[in-house]
Every structure is written in structure tokens, then in C-alpha cells.
């Protein structure tokens, strides 16, 4: 999901740089005002910790392995602004030193994985705990879904950006990214839940319980973004030409249709309707399966966890 340089068209990458720099700068001011001087140096170390935690991979199946991204975890632990700052640092260093993601694409990557992830995780955690009350299982479910949604929404945003850049049709990239990350998100959600639960058990005082709906504007923003992406993604998938047209009108796609080719009649791909339909169906099926898996795993995990807490002291 770390987009390299060269993939996004300038009219997508540069405005997102601006957006991320603006929000990052605001987060910076917010954080340096809200945190005590005691906590400020800790941010750098925690960012390194997230970076290192991403190394803790574990086998899923067939040679693939999963690992944490950490945006949701950071949000649940430190609140959205600190999380945005931490993820900005993590993603910047990954881009600069390890070429994980590009430098001009950094704005987009920070937006997708840092800003969007933190806002979505925050909104979901707040909403669910608001609905269900601050009970143990509610916190667990909220943490899981926060982790899951942060990943899926980030992936959808990535897909949209690639589609807006005229690289991949939305009806291909959105179901693909959404479907794959619906599964990857399960891993993120599970790790987030166990890490948060562990930290709450071992060092309860560390977990500053975020009061429900503590920051209403943020919560609204996160929820709005979540809803927007959930609605926009299927919309764009079912009408990729619409998205492309919008992108062209806004000048997102450079050279999408050079004059020489414009003389030709509008294109048709044989079997397009069937193919895109199949992809959409696969995407929907994947998402449904992922949701089912989530529920099954969550139930199994909760009953298992009760046994394990009694006979293991980590």
C-alpha cells in the first residue's frame, strides 16, 4: 500500500501533499500544546517502536505472513492527533531511508495510512463504544473494527487515487484492493485487539481511556470519511467511466486521451460488462466472506481468550 513515486499523476499527488502537510502541521501544533514536555520526546521513540513492531510478522497461510501497520493501535493508545504525527514520522522515514513508498507520493501515503487511518479508527472506536457502552467486549470489538477499517479504508483511498491517476480502472482496482485488504485488515484488527488488551492488563495506567465522543469534530470527520469511502468505492466501481470522466474534467489524468486518439469512436472492450460485473461480484463476495470470518474469529477468540488468561501470565 506504500505507493512509489511515478504512479500518481501530479494533480493527485501534489494536492495530497498539501493536505497532509497541512493536517500534519496542525497535528504538530495540537500535540505540542496538549502534551506535556515529558511526553514529547517519547513520540520519536514510539514511532521507532511502531516501525519495529511492523517487523513482528507471523505466518498466515501458504508462505504469506501478516504484520501490523499500527495506525489504529497508535490512535487507541494516544488519540488521533498523536497517532497522525507518529504515522507521519514512520511513513516519512520508510520513504526516505528504505524507499518504502515514494517521496512525492509521501503525501498520499501519509493521507491514506496515517490521517485517514487515524480518523477512521478514532471514529469507529468512538461510535461503537458510544452505542454499546464502555464494556469489555465493546472495547474489544471496537478495537478490532478500528484496526480492520483503518486498513480497508486506506486501501480504498489508495485505489481511488490510482484510478484518479488514470492507471487502473476503478472497477478493477477498488474491488481488488478492498477485497485483499478486507483480509489483511483482519490481521491488523486481531493484533490491535490483543496488543490493546495486553497493555490494559499489564499496565492499565498507561491506557488513558479516551472518553467517548471527546472530540466531536474529529469524530464527525472520521465518520464522514468512512461513509464517503464506503459509498464512493462501490459507486466508482460500478461506473468507472464516470470516475474517469470526472478525473479528466478535473484534469487529473494527463494525456488520458491525446487528440490523435480522440478522433476514434469511444472505446469498447469486448466482454467488459461481464468482466467488470464478475470483478464487482468477487469483491462483494470477498467482503462478505471477510465479515463472516471476522465474526467467527472474534467469537472463537473471545472464548479462547478467557481460558488463556487464566493459565498464562505473559
Amino acid at each position: 500500500m506504500h505507493i512509489p513515486d511515478g504512479f500518481l499523476s501530479p494533480s493527485v499527488a501534489l494536492p495530497l501533499w498539501g493536505v497532509s502537510a497541512g493536517i500534519g502541521g496542525y497535528a504538530l501544533r495540537r500535540v505540542s500544546r496538549e502534551l506535556t514536555e515529558r511526553e514529547t520526546p517519547v513520540i520519536g521513540v514510539v514511532a521507532a517502536g511502531i516501525f519495529a513492531a511492523q517487523m513482528l510478522n507471523f505466518p498466515i497461510a501458504g508462505g504469506t505472513s501478516g504484520h501490523l501497520i499500527g495506525t489504529a493501535l497508535a490512535t487507541l493508545l494516544f488519540g488521533p492527533w498523536v497517532a497522525i504525527l507518529i504515522m507521519t514520522c514512520v511513513l516519512s522515514l520508510q520513504a526516505l531511508i528504505f524507499q518504502d513508498g515514494g517521496l512525492i507520493a509521501l503525501g498520499a501515503n501519509i493521507f491514506n495510512m496515517g490521517i485517514l487511518g487515524a480518523l477512521v479508527a478514532y471514529a469507529i472506536d468512538q461510535t461503537l463504544r458510544g452505542i454499546w457502552g464502555d464494556r469489555r467486549w465493546a472495547r474489544t470489538a471496537a478495537a478490532f473494527l478500528a484496526g480492520w477499517a483503518a486498513v480497508v479504508m486506506g486501501a480504498l483511498a489508495t485505489g481511488l487515487e490510482l484510478a484518479l491517476s488514470g492507471l487502473v480502472p476503478a472497477n478493477v482496482v477498488l474491488p481488488a484492493m478492498g477485497g485483499i485488504h478486507a483480509l489483511i485488515g483482519v490481521v491488523e484488527g486481531l493484533i490491535t485487539v490483543s496488543a490493546v488488551t495486553f497493555l490494559r492488563t499489564v499496565r492499565g495506567e498507561l491506557m488513558v481511556e479516551r472518553p467517548v465522543a471527546g472530540r466531536v469534530p474529529l469524530w464527525v470527520a472520521g465518520l464522514a470519511l468512512t461513509l464517503l469511502l464506503t459509498l464512493l468505492a462501490p459507486l466508482a466501481s460500478s461506473d468507472p467511466d464516470g470516475l474517469e470522466r470526472v478525473a479528466e474534467d478535473l484534469g487529473f489524468i494527463q494525456a488520458a486521451r491525446p487528440p490523435a486518439f480522440e478522433l476514434l469512436p469511444d472505446y469498447t472492450i469486448p466482454g467488459l460488462s461481464n468482466r467488470s460485473l464478475a470483478v464487482i461480484l468477487a469483491g462483494i463476495l470477498g467482503a462478505l466472506m471477510a465479515f463472516g470470518l471476522v465474526i467467527v474469529l472474534l467469537l472463537g477468540w473471545r472464548s479462547r481468550q478467557r481460558e488463556r488468561v487464566s493459565n498464562s501470565k505473559t
Binding site: V46, G49, A52, A53, L56, N57, F58, P59, I60, A61, G66, H67, L68, L73, L77, V186, V187, L190, I191, T192, V193, S194, A195, V196, T197, F198, L199, V202, L297, G300, W301, R304, Q305, R308, T314
Partner: peptide, 16 residues
Amino acid sequence: LAWRAQVTGRMVGTLF
């Protein structure tokens, strides 16, 4: 998978 994720989650927690 859930169990492995939980072990990893604890490692992440410890690292944190």
C-alpha cells in the same frame, strides 16, 4: 490464525 495474531499482539504490546 486468531491465536497466532494474539501471540503477535502480545509481542507488539511487550515491545510497546
